[in-house]
Nucleic acid binder design. Structure first.
Length: 310
DNA sequence: CGAGTTTGACCCGCGC
DNA sequence: GCGCGGGTCAAACTCG
C-alpha cells in the first residue's frame, strides 16, 4: 500500500555489493551530498550514481559477497550476465536473466509482437489463463540499499502480487505501471544475503511520460537523439553499455539520456545498475555531457573529496 | 466509490 | 509425468 511511501529516515549507507571499505567511503560522500542543504529530494539517484564514475571507484577492494548471490536470481549465464569479470576488482555488479540470453529472439526486439503473442494466448485459452511466463521484454535490474522496498521512480505502480521467494525470508512483490497501455512491470525483493539491499527489476518500457520530472532529465535532448542514444529504458532507467567492464560504467550517461526520470533516491544511498537485457545499445557520451556530468559531480561532492579521489 | 493492497489459487516452464 | 517454484489473476479487503 501507500504505507511504503512514508517519509522515513532513509539511511544513507553503502552501495550494494560493495565492500565495507568502499561503503564507508561512499557513505561519507553521500552524507555530504545529502547534508549540504537544499532540496535533498531533488537528488536523483542516477546523479548519485555519477559518483561511481569517480576515477578508481571500481578499483576499490572487492566485495565480500557478491550481491548476485541472490537466490532468486538464476545462476549467471555467460550470455546473459554483463561482462563483469568475477574478479576481486569487480564490484559484483552483475546479474542475470534467463530471457536476456535470447538476444536473437525477435520478440525481444519487437515487444509489440510479444504483446500480441500474449493476447493471442489469452484468447486461445480464454478465461483465467493470461499468464505468460516468457519474459522477452528488456529487463533492467539494479540493487539499492534502502529501508523501503518500493522506491519512488516517478511512475505510479500497482501491486498485483507477492510471492515468497525460495531460500529467502523476504517476499517478492510484483508491481505494474498503473498507466493504461503501459505494460511495464517491476519486481521488488530484498536480498537474502544483505537484507538492506533491495533488488528492483524493471521489465518493459514505459509508453508514457512519468509524473515527475526530476533533475537529471534533459528535456532539451531531442527525442530522436534520445532514442538513438538509448532505447527507452524500462522503468525509466537509461542505457546500458553492452560489454561492460567495471571501469566502463559511466552512470552519468544514464542520467544524461534519461527520457524518463530516475527514481527518488532519497530512499537509497546508491545503487548498482545492471542490465538484464541484451537488447541494448551502447551509449555515446558527448563532451557536453561529460562536462555536464562533471558539473553534477561538483554539485554533489565537495571539491576536496573529489581531489582526493582523483 | 475509486484506487490500491492482500492473498490464495491457478497456470506455466523447467528440471529430474 | 511429476513436482517445484515463479509469475499472474482476481476476489476480498483497506484506505482516503
Amino acid at each position: 500500500m501507500m504505507m511504503e511511501k512514508r517519509e522515513e529516515n532513509r539511511e544513507v549507507t553503502a552501495v550494494a555489493g560493495v565492500s565495507p571499505f568502499v561503503a564507508d567511503q561512499i557513505e561519507g560522500i553521500f552524507d555530504i551530498a545529502f547534508d549540504s542543504g537544499g532540496d535533498k529530494s531533488s537528488q536523483g539517484f542516477l546523479e548519485l550514481l555519477g559518483l561511481q564514475d569517480l576515477p578508481g571507484f571500481f578499483d576499490l577492494p572487492a566485495p565480500t559477497a557478491p550481491v548476485e548471490a541472490t537466490p532468486s536470481e538464476p545462476p549467471p549465464d555467460s550470455s546473459a550476465v554483463l561482462n563483469f569479470p568475477a574478479t576481486p576488482n569487480s564490484s559484483s555488479i552483475s546479474s542475470s536473466s534467463t530471457e536476456a540470453a535470447t538476444d536473437t529472439d525477435p520478440a525481444k526486439t519487437q515487444p509489440q509482437e510479444d504483446e500480441q503473442d500474449k493476447t493471442q494466448k489469452i484468447d486461445s485459452k480464454g478465461g483465467k489463463n493470461k499468464r505468460q511466463k516468457r519474459q522477452s521484454e528488456p529487463r533492467f535490474a539494479f540493487m539499492t540499499k534502502s529501508e523501503v522496498d518500493h522506491l519512488e521512480d516517478g511512475y505510479r505502480w500497482r501491486k498485483y502480487g507477492q510471492k515468497a521467494v525460495k531460500n529467502s525470508p523476504f517476499p517478492r512483490s510484483y508491481y505494474r505501471c498503473t498507466s493504461a497501455m503501459c505494460g511495464v512491470k517491476k519486481r521488488v525483493e530484498r536480498s537474502s544475503v544483505d537484507p538492506a539491499v533491495v533488488i528492483t527489476t524493471y521489465e518493459g518500457q514505459h509508453t508514457h511520460p512519468s509524473t515527475v520530472l526530476p533533475r537529471g532529465v534533459h528535456p532539451a535532448l531531442p527525442p530522436p537523439l534520445a532514442a538513438e542514444m538509448a532505447p527507452p529504458p524500462p522503468g525509466g532507467l537509461g542505457c546500458v553499455l553492452p560489454s561492460l567492464q567495471p571501469k566502463e560504467l559511466h552512470f552519468p550517461y544514464f542520467t544524461s539520456y534519461l527520457p524518463t526520470p530516475p527514481m527518488d533516491f532519497r530512499h537509497v544511498s546508491a545503487g548498482i545498475i545492471t542490465a538484464l537485457s541484451g537488447d541494448l545499445r551502447e551509449c555515446k557520451p558527448t563532451a557536453d555531457i561529460l562536462n555536464r556530468d562533471h558539473g553534477l559531480l561538483q554539485d554533489v561532492i565537495r571539491s576536496d573529496i573529489r581531489n582526493k579521489k582523483e
